[in-house]
Amino acid sequence: MNPDLTEQDLLKGLATGDKKAIETIYKDNFNMVQSLVINNNGSAQEAKDIFQEAMIVLLEKARSGNFELNCQIKTYVYSVSRRIWLKKLQQYSRYSNEVDGAIGTVPVEDDVEEYEKRDQEFAMMEKAIASLGEPCKSLIEAFYIQKRNMQDIANQFGYTNADNAKNQKYKCLMRLKKLFFAQFKNGK
C-alpha cells in the first residue's frame, strides 16, 4: 500500500473518481477476494465480477460520506464480497454451505441490500436504454450520459440543425421514460 495515502484518503479519492486511489484499493484487495471466490466454487471471471461489485458498494459508501472508519477497507471489501458471493451461490444453488474464509467479517447486510436495490434500478435503466434501438440509444446516451451539447450531437448524427436533433431526442426520451417507468413502477 502506498504509505502516503491513508485509508481515509483512499476513500476520498475513490469518491471523487481518482484513478490512483482506485488502483491502490484494487491492488490491495483483489487477490484476497479472488482466492475467496475460487476456493468456494467460483471462477476467476466470477471473482472479478464479485470484487468489482464490492468496489461499487465501497464507492457508494465513500460517496455517502458516512463511511465510519470502524474497520479497514480490506475487512469491508472482504465482508461485502463474501456476502454477495454467498447470495450468488445460493441463487445458483451451486453450494449451500457457509463460504469459507480466513478473515473476520463485519456486518454488511444492509449495505449489500441497498446496493442490490440500486443495482436493480440500474439494470432497469440499462434494459430500457438497450431496448430503445438505434439511433435513439446513441442519441440519448450522448445527451444524458456523455452530456454533450445539442449542436455537437446534431453534427455527429447528421441532423441539419440542433432543433432537428432536439426533436428527435425528445421522441426518444418519451419512449425511454415510458419504458423505464413501466419497469420502475412494476419493480416497486
Partner: peptide
Amino acid sequence: LFIHQMNEVGELRKFKSTLNEVHTDL
C-alpha cells in the same frame, strides 16, 4: 428522478470501465 437515474447509470458505467481498465493494467 429520471435524470438522477441517468446520471447514476452514467457514473456507474464510467466507474465500471475504470475498474476494468485498472484490472487489466494491474
